[in-house]
Structures are given as C-alpha cells and as structure tokens.
Simulated assay, not measured.
Amino acid sequence: MEDKEFYSIGEVSKICNISKKALRFYDKIGIISPDKVRDDNNYRFYNRTTLLSLPVIKYYKQMGFKLEEMRELFEGNTYALIERQFRNKIDELRELETTIHNSYTSVKDWYDLILEAQLVIENDVHEVAVKYVDTTVYAFMEQDFNYNYRESIINIDWTNYLESINNEITGSVVLLFPSFHEKMEGTCKRAKIMQKPLLKYQEDQVTRIGGYMAASCYHIGGHENIHETYAKICEWADSHGYTCAEECYERYVTDYWTTRNEEQFVTEIVVQITR
C-alpha cells in the first residue's frame, strides 16, 4: 500500500478488498466516514488511520457482530461498554450454538432412522434377536390407546405437552404398553408415548427405560397385522426357554412422519426377557 495522506474510495476498495457500495453504506450508518469529501464532486477520501478500521470491522463481522453493534463498539470509549457488548455476544452465540446443535441432533437422528429402515427392508430383517437395551431417558406422557396408530404417533396432545414443559425431542416415537399380551390380543387401552428430550428437564417429566436383555423383532409394513410379530416373539421365547415381561414397547423407526407408503413402515418391537 502506497504511503500517502489520503486514499480515494476506489483505492480503499482495492487495498482493503471491500466494495465501494459497502464503504458508502458504512458512512451512511455512521461506522466509518470519509475524512475528506470534495465539494465539487462529492468524492470521498480516507486517511491511513481510517483504513486500519476496516480489518477490525471484518473481524467483528467474523465474530458475528451486526453493523449496529459495530457502531456502538467504535463509539465506545470505556472497557465497561466494550466488555458488556462482548459478554452479550457470547451469550447470544452460546444460545445459537445450542439451537444449531439441537437441530443437527434432530436431523441426524432422523437420518439414522431412515438408514436403519432401509437396511431392515433391503435385508428383510424380520427374525427375533436377543439384544441388550441401554438405559435411555425419555420424556413421556400417559395417554389412551385405541389402535389408531396415525394419531398416536403424530400426536397433537404430545406436541402441546412438550411445548408446555418447554422441551424439544429427537429420535423415534416410542409407545410403551403395560401388557405384552393385551397389546398382542388387541385389548390394550393405555400407552405411554415417549421420545428423547433435547433440553433440560425435571425428573418428574422423564422416565428411564432399559438396562436389561430383550427380545427384539422388526415388523415391516402397516400396523394392522403387527400382532403377528408379537406372536412370533412369544413362540420364539417359548422355544428358547425365555419368559417375556409384561411391559413392552414399539419403536417406530419409519412411519407416518417419514412416508405415506405403509409398506415402507418399519417398527421394532422390544420386550424384556428372562430365563
């Protein structure tokens, strides 16, 4: 950069890699103003000290400061004012970081469910398997159950409840049933809808499921014949010397949230087993 007393707006644009339009806008809102303006043609000129403000503006922009905030920082002449501005920005960015993290988690969890369903369907995975179920924290709500799966899974009351406790959820919808046999026979009247919470919660708003060995079996397709998969688990347990616990749950890997094609639905039935 040539050492001179004043630089034209065009020279500043080239030296600092910033458009003349941006420089004019900075002048308009009072962030950086030219040090001299010719009366005859309104040409703008900046001195060397003013040029050095532009890298600062770019760094402020990198940190997420808005133009109005930058103006206050440039006007500020005390550490107290600057410290307050930076503290507010840290709080704002921390909140934004949490929001982005929660959005990422929700999208990633849903994506993983889609991949799981694809693998189950492509490999026709429908046999009973034994697995260890990790203890998982779920937000939950008790509800009546009348075998209307669409309204149980895409659940307005559940959504309203989550909003009332200021929480968000991620992952598959899970319905926990108090009786394995009643669910299989089509006589179950109650269920507990559950999903993993994303935000802070009170202990009375969550339940913990897992920490045991379970029989697991995927059901592919609509839910009208899901009782057949329950019967399969019963037969398998009897033939392998296992006893099924009363409580069981259905984890909806893909359902009405993901596709309208019921043939593409994948549901995992899980029931605790003991010898």
Rank of each mutant, 00 (worst) to 15 (best):
V266N: 02
Y59P: 00
L23Y: 05
I114Y: 02
M141R: 14
Y252E: 03
T229P: 02
Y149F: 13
E224F: 04
L67E: 02
A231H: 11
S53I: 09
Y132V: 06
I273M: 07
Y104L: 13
E246D: 15
E235S: 13
I169V: 13
Y46C: 10
T135Q: 14
L96C: 10
F140L: 03
L93F: 03
T229L: 03
I226S: 03
K4Q: 13
I32A: 06
Y79L: 15
K14W: 04
K189L: 12
W236C: 04
H227R: 15
F45T: 06
Y242A: 04
P197I: 00
Y132W: 14
Y138I: 00
K108L: 12
S8T: 11
V125G: 01
E68K: 07
R87C: 13
V130K: 13
N102M: 09
E263A: 11
K36W: 09
K89Q: 14
T50M: 08
K192F: 00
R84G: 14
D40R: 10
N160S: 12
N166M: 10
V120K: 03
V128Q: 07
Y26H: 04
L115Q: 15
L52Y: 13
I226C: 03
G211I: 06
Y132G: 08
K28Q: 14
E122I: 03
S179K: 01
N146V: 08
L113V: 00
N160C: 08
A117P: 01
Q195R: 09
K58A: 07
H223A: 10
N123C: 01
A129C: 10
V56W: 02
K196N: 10
A80E: 15
G10I: 04
E11F: 02
V174S: 02
V107W: 07
Q85T: 15
R94S: 12
N123T: 03
R48C: 13
F86E: 12
